[in-house]
Design a protein around this nucleic acid. Structure first.
Lengths: 113, 113
DNA sequence: CAGCATCCTAGCTGATACTG
DNA sequence: CAGTATCAGCTAGGATGCTG
């Protein structure tokens, strides 16, 4: 699941646990508190059920996300940030601000103008 | 090359330009000043020539890296951070520190203990 | 030295259908 | 509601050899 065994720098390690197409988005959605599976699926636009599960399982395995199962019918599961997840989110904020500031530029690159 | 056309948050946009297996590492190597192609290849352990070129071209296209060609024999090319690249590096520092602090944990996850 | 061309593959990702 | 199972495609990434 993780790509490397050893890391050359901390950035490398951080990107290994939260990099990829979806993980940062999922963590971001959990900032405001626990979310149920279905909520997450709607919030993280474009993700499929299958991929969301896979990503959540990986985040859980890394200790970034906690999965709380309520034994009910119908079933209810809540995902939330762990303390480690919280600390990671905080570390990602400057990067988020950078992206915010340069988003137009990046989107224009994508359009090729 | 970039994965998305629109972004739901800045973090999303930032990860689109510097995410992936190598880009952050490459940017990191350029912090201390310009590097020649061969130097980079040795610094970024494990990367192949082909992939290094591809990544550098993408970083260049995003305006994060500058490519300076010296018309010599044998050829010499130097890669350096642009101002935008510098600002991105700064935004990545907290994430790098987070990774630094939790690297042992992450590596232990990878080993499965 | 820098870097392109070619071929190849692993695994991420997506679509769809089904279950407790 | 919260998943699992299955199938299939794409593309990032890797190996190798060649060139200005």
């Amino acid at each position: 699941m993780l790509k490397r065994r050893t890391y050359t720098c901390g950035l490398d390690a951080a990107l290994d646990v939260m990099g990829g197409k979806w993980k940062a988005l999922i963590l971001w959605e959990l900032i405001d508190g626990p979310q149920r599976f279905g909520q997450l699926r709607r919030q993280v636009a474009g993700i499929s059920e299958r991929v969301l599960i896979l990503q959540l399982r990986e985040l859980e395995a890394c200790g970034l996300v906690h999965r709380e199962l309520y034994h009910q019918v119908p079933p209810k599961v809540e995902y939330s940030l762990t303390d480690l997840g919280q600390s990671l989110i905080k570390a990602m904020i400057p990067l988020g601000e950078w992206g915010e500031q340069h988003m137009e530029l990046i989107e224009s690159l994508d359009r090729g103008d």
